[in-house]
Amino acid sequence: MSQILVKLADLNVSNNPEDLLVVYGLGSTAAVLLYDREVGIGGIAHFMLPSSASDPQRAREYPAMYADVAIPLLVESCIGKGACRESLTARLAGGSILMGQGISRSISEGNIATARQILEKLAIPLTAENTGGNHNRAVRMEISTGKSFVKRPDGSWEEMV
């Protein structure tokens, strides 16, 4: 199985059953994982800020940096590979929050809230979520099955169902 790393502010889509898409280093950032079971196409977007409104120019250079641009783009990229919008399902992970009255709350919660809103607007069902807390996460998706896993704080992998 070949591992494809999805970097921060980036997205990847695959229809190769040999591929495993992986995101490491989910802090206050978040990942949306989409999968079309009918055709075996999946993709992950790893975004770090909720809205591109403050910096549309940067959003053109790094579209996957912002939830509001990254998720629609991920949907289009999956469709471009042959997925059908109606059969896509979504999973969501990330959005850890620093302790205290910290600086990260609006970004972490904004990433998760925006992702939920956009998925709802696009009528893509959100089937599993693993968000919040104050630990780092990693997620991975097997393209052959669509099975997705999140790394627990103790290092073990838990299926997102």
Partner: peptide, 11 residues
């Protein structure tokens, strides 16, 4: 927050 250099201490 951006996961640059992740460890067991996390966030």
């Amino acid at each position: 927050m951006l996961g640059i250099g992740r460890g067991a201490d996390g966030l």
